[in-house]
Amino acid sequence: MSTSNSFSNNMRVIHRYLGFFLAGIMAVYAISGVILIFRDTDFLKKEKQIVQMIKPNASEKEIGEMLKMRQFKVDKTEGDLIYFRDGTYNKSTGKAEFKVKQLPTILEKMTHLHKAKTEDPLYYFNIFFGLSLLFFVISAFWMFMPQTTIFKRGLYFTLGGIILTLILLFV
């Protein structure tokens, strides 16, 4: 057996078993990726009432930071009560009551895995997964012998995919 055939065989074997090993996490990424498309809607989200004690007499900026609300904005103030979208904050007591819309727990965990940042230990897994997907892209070219019709036709599909990707990125 030649070295080229041995390399091709090894690529196929690694591609196959890595694919089996990562099948579950690929399903999680696929599902959470689709769900993330709808993150700015209420799709699949349930409303939850939150009561939280924060620092009394907080500024508007501090309230938003402590409640972890992006684009926090005060709608109106009546005495000690500050009204904001979906909630209130009592300046004298520090009590904040508001509603949030959250995904069910399992979907929340899936999207958290998908969006892990460098502060999160999960990001090492995301790096491994990303590199594994890159390996799949490269090793796919060793799945068929270059002189076969399937391989040559596959190159046309590859070119079509690259062109579609470029159109999506730049249009």
Rank of each mutant, 00 (worst) to 15 (best):
D40H: 06
T41Q: 01
D42L: 09
D42Y: 13
D42E: 09
L44R: 07
L44H: 06
L44V: 08
L44Y: 10
K46R: 12
E47K: 14
I50K: 06
I54H: 04
K55V: 13
N57T: 11
S59H: 12
S59W: 14
K61C: 11
E62H: 13
I63P: 03
G64Q: 02
K68E: 15
M69W: 00
M69H: 08
R70Q: 15
R70K: 15
F72Y: 06
K73W: 07
K73F: 07
V74R: 11
K76P: 08
K76V: 10
T77M: 09
G79N: 05
L81P: 00
Y83A: 04
F84C: 01
R85V: 08
D86S: 11
D86G: 04
G87R: 01
G87H: 00
T88Y: 00
Y89C: 02
K91H: 06
S92L: 07
S92P: 02
T93N: 01
G94M: 03
E97K: 02
K99T: 08
K99L: 07
V100K: 08
V100G: 05
V100T: 14
K101N: 05
P104L: 04
I106T: 14
L107H: 09
L107S: 09
E108V: 07
K109G: 11
M110G: 08
M110R: 04
T111F: 06
T111Y: 04
T111E: 07
H112Y: 10
L113P: 07
L113F: 14
H114I: 04
A116D: 05
A116I: 00
A116F: 03
K117G: 15
T118E: 04
T118N: 07
E119Q: 12
D120S: 06
D120V: 03
D120P: 02
P121H: 05
Y123P: 02
N126S: 09
N126Q: 10
I127K: 03
F128W: 11
F128N: 05
F128D: 07
S132V: 07
F136I: 10
V137K: 09
V137R: 10
V137F: 14
I138K: 07
S139C: 04
A140M: 02
A140L: 00
F144H: 03
F144S: 02
M145Y: 14
P146E: 03
P146K: 01
P146N: 01
Q147R: 15
T148L: 03
T149I: 11
T149D: 12
K152F: 02
K152A: 01
R153W: 13
G154M: 00
Y156H: 12
F157C: 12
F157L: 15
G160P: 04
G160L: 11
L164A: 15
